[in-house]
Computed example of a mutant assay.
Amino acid sequence: MPNEMKDQYSQFGGAISEMATESLKGWRNSIGEAAITIVDQILDGKNEEERKTFFEGQIKREDGMRPCYYPENNVERPEDVFQSQIVSETFATHFEIIKNIPDYSRSEALPKAALVLSISAIDRAFVLSRNGVAPGNFSSYQRAKNWGLQIHQLFAKNRITAQMWSQIIAAAKAHVEPQTSNITSSIPS
């Protein structure tokens, strides 16, 4: 915080809170929109019967986990959880958004909230696409907010190890465009 603002939160607090809220809404909406886009891409060209079969296969849950959380829907490989195309591409949105934040300014904590939000967004994308409902504002979707707690409980129950987290993050980052630099060399050629 700049020195000029120290001890003046009461004066600037409302503006800071409003900016933080808008940033969070933008982050959530971006992840929600990514999930909807990916589901639309998966369904592109499928007829009504294929769409119905797809949703039936993805909406079912076994022990709280959807087949779409696993590559190739292979629930027999629990160590690959949250590394499927749809999860990785949706989760990649978080890394795309933060890629310009310097490493020293980022939290060292695992991005659990971003993964929870990604999974909630996928759930909502399935519901919206299956029912033919327009996406709307992801940030205001109460069901997604409520479901976040259940997803956090899945993490605890399924014991995602540090190695699994590394694989989940690597799978998502594989979908992030490399950062481009606007800095040009001042060394004459």
Rank of each mutant, 00 (worst) to 15 (best):
K60E: 10
I187Q: 12
E96M: 04
L154F: 09
E96D: 08
R106G: 06
L43N: 05
A170C: 05
S118G: 07
Q58K: 08
D123M: 00
K6D: 12
T90P: 02
V81W: 13
T93P: 02
S120H: 02
Y141E: 09
A162W: 05
N73L: 10
Q179V: 12
I97H: 01
F155S: 08
I38M: 07
I168V: 07
Q167K: 15
L117F: 06
A162E: 15
Q167R: 11
N74V: 03
D7I: 08
P178N: 02
M1T: 15
E56G: 00
F95V: 00
A134F: 11
S107V: 01
S129K: 12
N182H: 15
A15G: 04
F82C: 01
V133N: 14
V127L: 09
I119K: 00
Q8K: 15
P135R: 11
R124N: 08
N158H: 12
Q167Y: 05
Q11I: 13
R124E: 04
Q83V: 02
Y69S: 02
F91P: 05
C68W: 14
E72S: 12
Y9A: 11
S10P: 04
G132D: 10
A171I: 03
H152E: 14
V87P: 02
D40N: 13
K52T: 09
A109N: 13
V116F: 04
Q150K: 11
S139N: 11
K6N: 13
L149H: 13
L128P: 01
S166G: 13
G14Y: 09
Q41D: 12
Q179E: 09
D7M: 10
Q153H: 13
Q85E: 14
F126G: 01
K46A: 03
N146S: 13
F91E: 05
S120Q: 10
E79C: 03
K157Q: 15
V176K: 02
R124I: 01
S181G: 02
W165E: 07
R61T: 10
F12D: 08
Y70K: 02
A171M: 01
F91W: 07
S181R: 02
Q163S: 05
V127S: 11
Y141P: 00
Y141M: 01
K52M: 06
N3K: 15
S105P: 01
A171Y: 06
P111K: 03
